[in-house]
Computed example of a mutant assay.
Amino acid sequence: MPNSEQPKQLSKTLVLLMAVSCGLGIANLYYNQPLLADIGRTFGADDQQSGLVSMLTQIGFAVGLFIFIPFGDILEKRKLITVLLLSVGVALISLSVAQNLTWVYIASFMVGLTTVTPQIIVPFVAELAPPNERGKAIGNVMSGLLIGILLARTVAGFIGDLFSWRAMFGFAAAMMFGLAYVLHRYLPVSQPIMKLSYSGLIRSIGQLIASQPTLRESALIGAFVFGSFSAFWTTLTFFLEGPNYQYGSSAAGLFGLVGIVGAATASLIGRLADRVSPKYMIGLMSMVVLIAYLSFWLLETRLWGLFIGVVLLDLGYQGVHVSNQTRIYSLLPNARSRLNTVYMVSSFLGGSIGSACGTIAWQRWGWLGTCAIGGVMATAAFLIWLGHRLIHPRREVQ
């Protein structure tokens, strides 16, 4: 039986620590993107083979979400976070010393599998925050998470140019070991809110999917939007190294700095989600992602056009993501980790599909193919949102 929620203190300092932790944690998934060409050159791989590194990392993350995130409802969260951070540190060391492409593939999958602490921290924040400030708290932490995603590319690009891609993953491993110590010392102890066996916990996930239409809608929209987001970032390095620009990996990383403009809006979006129904924000932000791809397509040879598109893409993705999470965390307080499991597994399966399709489209049709894949996925997300509004025009959806 679920325990009643106990009010806890969520200070500004703790929110900042959790935001920074999410950013550092999630960055492990994205260090490889500006380094794909360098990794490929090391092992004599083509663009499509190199692109599999990003896809396998995201697939590993989706599997890790399904395996580990439900534990957040039945285990003490601080210990769970510490163990996972130590595990991803070991996986990153393995990746940094990889001797062949198969080794890189396996280590990348293991990095994704163990890089799930941010998705334990986000429901933890929702648990600690007062209901009337939940969207704001989630938005603040999500700002840290998305800034981590974007800065990961910048940092990896520069370290890859200055040293090597191996040095980047060794540095990341050291950060994970340090972060494990800090969070173990400063995070509050969180008692489990459910008493279930792991098998019962997993079975209950299927029951949540069947009984919660808002969860199903959010999961599908999240999958398509993150797929659209991933298609761009996976192929950007190849595009920038092509004849239009002829830039190196550090230039691809610099685009992460541009995207911080979009990431910085997460706190504002979270506040709006506390005051305005997040279902409307989702439709609007899905359209912003589509407009970003129109900018990429129409202004592909103009650097300022790419800058505008990156800001719009990150703004739209962040808006959809924060609004979706605000919706689902309000459904069943005692099942937040499992709700987050469904949502995030769907999102990252969509992200891995977007990475794979984006890479294939780039190989066959160039930048136009990448824009087509991203635009189609963004359109699908908007149509799911619109279809639900048309089918259930009078139903109030959170």
Rank of each mutant, 00 (worst) to 15 (best):
V83Q: 14
R216C: 06
T214Y: 10
Q33H: 09
I205L: 08
M377T: 10
M285P: 10
R203F: 10
V258P: 00
M285V: 13
L92K: 04
V90M: 09
I159Y: 02
T265Q: 11
P2R: 13
N32I: 08
A126I: 07
V88G: 06
T115P: 03
I81G: 01
V288E: 02
Q325Y: 08
F171G: 05
I39Q: 04
Y245L: 07
A137Q: 07
A251I: 13
L24G: 03
G222H: 05
G112I: 01
S347Y: 14
G135A: 06
R275H: 13
P393N: 11
G358V: 04
E133F: 09
G369V: 00
A273Y: 03
S199N: 14
I67G: 00
E300C: 11
R394C: 11
Q191C: 11
Q398V: 14
I353T: 08
M285Q: 13
R134I: 10
G178H: 06
G253Y: 00
N28R: 08
M194R: 15
F163D: 10
G23A: 15
V63C: 05
M18G: 04
I67Q: 00
R203N: 13
S230W: 08
L65H: 01
I149V: 14
L383N: 05
A45C: 10
I193F: 02
I328Y: 01
L196I: 10
F232T: 04
L386V: 12
C371P: 03
A19N: 02
L240M: 08
V116E: 01
E241R: 15
I373F: 00
T214R: 13
I291D: 08
Q49L: 12
P7Y: 08
T326L: 10
Q318G: 05
L85G: 01
L14Q: 10
V104D: 02
S4K: 14
Q33E: 07
V288L: 08
A210R: 08
A152Y: 05
G351N: 07
V311F: 04
I26V: 13
Y293T: 06
D38C: 04
E76W: 05
R216N: 07
A251E: 10
S211I: 08
R327E: 00
L257G: 07
T42V: 09
I59D: 01
Y30F: 12
S211Y: 04
P243A: 14
F71Q: 11
G23S: 14
Q99N: 13
S352N: 07
L113G: 02
D73V: 02
A381F: 06
Y181L: 15
L84E: 06
S347V: 13
R275I: 12
A156D: 09
W165K: 03
G369M: 03
G242N: 12
S230K: 11
Y186N: 15
A167R: 04
S352H: 06
S50R: 07
W233N: 05
R336A: 04
Q48A: 15
A378V: 03
A152M: 09
F124Q: 14
P34N: 09
I202Q: 06
I269W: 02
W103S: 10
G242S: 15
S355I: 01
N340T: 07
Q58T: 04
P333F: 01
L95R: 00
P34A: 07
W103A: 11
K79H: 15
T237M: 13
E133L: 13
L315Q: 04
V53H: 00
S190R: 09
L331T: 09
G305N: 08
